[in-house]
Amino acid sequence: MSSLRNIVVLISGSGTNLQALIDAQNTESLPQTRITLVLSNRKAAYGLTRAQQANPPIPTAYLALQPYLKTNPGKTRDDYDAEVAKIVLKEKPELVVLAGWMHVFGDGFLDLTNGAEPPIPVINLHPALPGAFDGANAIERAYEAAQKGKVTHSGAMVHRVVKEVDRGEPLIVREVPIEKDEPLETFAQKLHSVEWEIIVKATKKALDEVKPIQA
């Protein structure tokens, strides 16, 4: 049995969080770990290029919801989610990391990952604090709330994926202050820097639970 711990990363965009994982794999930050597949639901996602340019290159896959539904008449969003899960399960990963994956999974995905033997945990990076700004555009919504004096900070977390959006148990939570009158770009950059750190730490934490390092 291999002592390497395999992870699959799902992305939708530029892949800066993926890059943090690529840089950390098989280092002290993420020992005995390799990314075996990067899957995107957007063909133009730059994260796919990051994976291909890694050393060694990381295999990639692409599957988007609308093209899948168009080429598979009668299939549903749940069928798409199950299809993504099947691609992931072929890799036999110890962990699935959603790193900027902009698609909310329904039961079709989690039923298969939870039903694997052993079950495969799924974790997600979300740029907000638990229960604060669930769902999309969390950074912009938090910033807007701060400008109206409703909040003084936001943050980022990595949480376990459950069927309720962004409501799984948090593994790591970090607060990020929002300074009065700072540009949105400045706040976003501070938050992204925190994301790059915690996605690596949370991935290690989750892996250590399911497949501890062999001495």
Rank of each mutant, 00 (worst) to 15 (best):
Q147E: 05
T71Q: 15
P67A: 05
V151C: 01
G106T: 02
I139G: 02
I123A: 03
V161M: 14
Q147V: 00
E175T: 02
L191N: 08
N41T: 12
F109G: 00
K150R: 07
F109H: 05
A61Y: 07
E195Y: 13
Q19N: 07
P177A: 04
P130C: 11
E185H: 12
I172T: 05
V161Y: 12
K86M: 11
A128L: 03
A142M: 01
A136Y: 14
D181P: 06
E179W: 02
G106A: 02
A20L: 08
Q189P: 00
E28P: 11
R5N: 12
Q32R: 15
R34F: 04
I35C: 08
G115T: 04
V8W: 14
T49S: 11
Q53C: 06
E182I: 01
I7C: 02
Y68L: 11
F187R: 01
V194Y: 08
M157I: 02
R167A: 13
H153P: 01
P177Q: 04
I213L: 15
P183Q: 09
A116Q: 12
Y62M: 08
I123V: 09
P31I: 14
M102Y: 14
L95P: 04
G108N: 04
I35L: 10
T33D: 06
P73R: 14
S154V: 00
I7P: 00
G74E: 12
H126N: 04
L63H: 07
G13S: 10
V161L: 13
S3G: 04
L39S: 13
P59G: 03
V96C: 09
H159F: 04
V104G: 01
P67Y: 10
G13T: 10
K180S: 00
Q189T: 03
I198G: 01
Q32T: 03
V151H: 00
A188D: 08
V165K: 15
A116H: 15
D107C: 01
R34H: 06
K86F: 06
A45S: 05
Q189Y: 05
V104D: 01
